[in-house]
Design a protein around this nucleic acid. Structure first.
Length: 736
RNA sequence: GCUGCUGUAGCUCAGUGGUAGAGCACUUCCUUGGUAAGGAAGAGGUCAUGGGUUCAAGUCCCAUCAGCAGCUCCA
């Protein structure tokens, strides 16, 4: 082994072998020295854990005298797919610029399923334009031109973007990249883009690419900012993978809970009832009841106490909790006991916003008098704050209510309703609490995002040193619940505060303590978890369960949140062993999240075919003909008495048709009964999945089903072979 | 809320400025059967709503409402 001379670099390959190359050699050259085939397959390189272009001279990348640790990435490496897709985004942008005038490029990162590029251009791109854009993309790919990287000083970069008429890039250099001395660009033929990289060696590596959709977006995600057009696409190393991906999208569409919910009579949303307000149809309601009964029983056995609270509460309570001012825009407007209450509220808001003049105030004072509201203390020349305080006194008289947007304040009041001793803690209060939130119209989505929802909510009030144990117990509860419905692929997102954010309440010390407690338990639990800064609730950090369903999609379901804030605001106290008043810690938790969202997710996960224990129709009795109808009804009665969800198909058709209907309606079991069964007291049991099981005594069929229910068996869940690519957007992209 | 697309029977969808259609489902009748579709007849529409253009509008234009996709948001 010789020491590398100044003109050479030493390269250490993953298997530990050391090779020496000239310092201007690239990763591709290293590959070529191993084999031509490898060189053809190299997509990018990983040097000491950082992804770089395979065409970067290794000399640039050596940081010290140590050998360069090089890993050549080929299409077999997951990370390479992101590089490919980002390059595909460049190719797509290049095609768009060839076809359209005046295109301003924004950003073009990779996503979980592919990539997109945001453009500003006057002409509207529609799906009808896709074939011509794709044709242009194919031309670019066929030319196999290389991606070339070059570095320039910031001022020069600005001029380059300006010369290219890329004003969004210019702006980004001025703002987002103000602290960068130099920036990198990538050139591919005539196409030059400010970009961090890395990229594939040449466009020919893209073997399968498809434009997916076009949608609106905003420059730097600011809704008030410039409107852009976002073109989505996806790319793969071979056509088979693309085909599998498209099949997965089709599968997801087939499972859409809105379609299945309608088809199977599970739920309905009707504009006359109201946007985002879910009607649970009888079959959907049965699923919900099964979930509720299951969880209620579980919670009771785990030391929870059931409580109930009303659907409305006084605004003052939500002012105390801090929710009202903070979330005013996403709550339904307050309800007023009287007209004058509404007037005072509008008045107070105008004062707050400064949108009222003296003349307006005088008129309102006169109007208030008509309603018997005298305001001698209201000084027209006074400060808005003082005026609002005067109005507030009357607002206490003319009550304002809010449709309950969350259950926490009510549960705090339940805590306060009685004297509390440390001996009673932890106090675990649970309720299926229905809350209402005025979500933006564009956010509404079937059962997944609604305006009226029922949380499987509970609040645990405990001492500081019980927090860890209680948090661990709720994590375990959530795991148990997920396992019960057959969801076992999940991880936890630990949502922390944004260190620079200002939306949070509570002391620095409490936050650190809370975040530390959550992290500690997760560390010990062995669960896979990752931390997200800036995702915390305004009152405390939270741990959210991110669940992957059977076709690889991620859902945010159960949540556990720590709260040192509400106990403070509501001045909650318990009497400690030392006979002093102490402040409890509060844990919010909901293993389902909401019944709506959880059920919607389950519909998609099971493609409407619920496991027996959750099924709205567990068994259907099919008489061979009307002659067997009486026996069928008798069997159904027997099954019903055994606690099974049973129906009888009394329609006039042939049994084949009845079976077909039951199969299509996803009934778990069918009991076919004819003269033979009537004579012997049997049923011919048919399983939706395994088909005819033959005749057996009715009691045997009951026992079989009850066993399956009791064990909460989950059968036949489609498993996808397709795994969504892991995205490391920090590593790749032109967003810097 | 923003941008774009869509709105015809309970459902899925045809309908090219000139009298509103199909399949499934539904109702009635016939059929009485053995593990994924028996037959016949019938009923069902203010073509999302409101304006406009036209001799004539489901069809073209505008507005509103709702849905969908994406953006933004999610206590």
């Amino acid at each position: 082994m010789s020491t590398a001379s100044a003109a050479n670099v030493q390269v250490k390959l993953p298997d530990g072998t050391l090779v020496e190359h000239p310092s201007d050699a690239t990763s591709l050259d290293v590959a070529r020295a191993i084999s031509e085939g490898l060189a053809r397959n190299v997509i990018a390189a990983e040097i000491s854990g950082t992804m770089v272009d395979a065409s970067r001279p290794l000399g640039e990348l050596a940081t010290d005298d140590q050998p360069i640790e090089l890993k050549l990435l080929t299409s077999r490496d997951e990370a390479a797919l992101s590089v490919l897709r980002h390059s595909a985004a460049h190719v797509m942008a290049r095609a768009v610029m060839r076809l359209y005038e005046g295109v301003s490029l924004a950003f073009g990162p990779v996503t979980e399923g592919g990539f997109y590029y945001d453009f500003e251009l006057d002409e509207k791109i529609s799906e009808e334009d896709f074939p011509k854009i794709e044709a242009e993309i194919k031309k670019i790919i066929k030319d196999k031109e290389p991606f070339e990287r070059f570095i320039v000083e910031r001022a020069e970069a600005r001029k380059l973007c300006d010369d290219l008429d890329q004003d969004l890039k210019v702006e980004h250099i001025d703002t987002g990249l103000a602290d960068q001395a130099t920036v990198s660009f990538y050139r591919q033929g005539e196409f030059i883009d400010l970009c961090r990289g890395p990229h594939i060696p040449d466009a020919g590596k893209i073997k399968a690419i498809k434009l997916m959709s076009v949608a609106g977006s905003h420059w730097k995600a600011d809704t008030a900012g410039r409107q852009l057009q976002r073109l989505y696409g996806t790319a793969f190393f071979d056509k088979k993978e693309l085909k599998a991906y498209l099949a997965q999208i089709e599968e997801a569409k087939r499972r859409d809970h809105r379609v299945l919910g309608k088809q199977h009579g599970l739920f309905a949303i009707n504009p006359e009832v109201g946007q985002g307000l879910c009607l649970w149809l009888p079959k959907g309601a049965r699923v919900r009841v099964a979930l509720e009964d299951f969880l209620r029983k579980e919670l009771l056995s785990r030391g929870y106490d059931p409580v109930y609270s009303p659907h409305i509460g006084r605004v003052e309570m939500y002012e105390t909790s801090g929710h009202f001012p903070y979330y005013r825009d996403s709550q339904f407007a307050p309800l007023f006991g009287s007209e004058v209450g509404a007037m005072l509220d509008a008045w107070s808001q105008k004062l707050e916003q400064g949108t009222i003049d003296r003349d307006g105030e005088e008129k309102l004072i006169e109007a208030a008098k008509v309603f018997g509201v005298e305001l001698p203390k209201y000084k027209l020349s006074g400060a808005a704050e003082d005026k609002r305080n005067v109005l507030h006194e009357w607002q206490m008289v003319h009550e304002r209510y809010l449709l309950k947007p969350m259950n926490c304040p009510h549960h705090c009041q339940i805590f306060k309703a009685q004297q509390r001793s440390y001996r009673q803690l932890p106090l675990r209060l649970f309720e299926f609490g229905t809350v209402y939130r005025h979500e933006q119209t564009g956010e509404l989505n079937g059962m997944l995002r609604v305006r009226g929802l029922t949380q499987d909510d509970a609040h645990i009030f405990c001492t500081a040193d019980q927090v860890e144990h209680e948090f661990r117990a709720t994590i375990e509860l959530t795991q148990f619940v997920l396992r019960s419905v057959g969801l076992d692929d999940y991880s936890v997102q630990l949502s922390l505060r944004d260190p620079n954010g200002d939306k949070y309440v509570g002391s620095e010390q409490n936050w650190n303590q809370a975040e530390g407690a959550l992290r500690g338990v997760l560390e010990q639990s062995g669960l896979t978890y990752h931390e997200e800064e800036g995702e915390a609730a305004f009152y405390g950090p939270k741990a959210d369960f991110m669940v992957r369903d059977c076709i690889g999609r991620s859902w945010q379901l159960g949540t556990v949140q720590l709260d040192y804030n509400l106990p403070e605001r509501f001045k909650l106290e318990y009497n400690g062993r030392d006979n002093q008043a102490h402040r409890p810690v509060m844990i919010h938790r909901a293993p389902f999240g909401s019944l709506e969202r959880f059920t919607g997710m389950l519909i998609e996960h099971f493609a409407g075919a619920f496991p027996l224990w959750l099924s709205p129709e567990q068994i259907r009795v099919l008489p061979l003909s009307d002659k067997s109808l009486d026996y069928a009804v008798a069997v159904a009665k027997q099954l019903d008495e055994a606690g099974l969800k049973v129906t009888v198909d009394s329609s006039g058709g042939k049994v084949q048709a009845k079976i077909r209907n039951a199969q299509l309606e996803l009934v778990n079991y069918m009991a076919v009964v004819g003269p033979k069964e009537a004579e012997t007291g049997m049923v011919a049991l048919r399983d939706r999945i395994d088909g005819d099981l033959g005749s057996m005594p009715t009691a045997e069929a009951v026992a079989r089903l009850k066993q399956e229910i009791q064990s909460r068996q989950v059968r036949q869940v489609v498993q996808t072979s397709f795994a969504a690519a892991a995205v490391d957007s920090d590593a790749i992209g032109n967003e810097y």
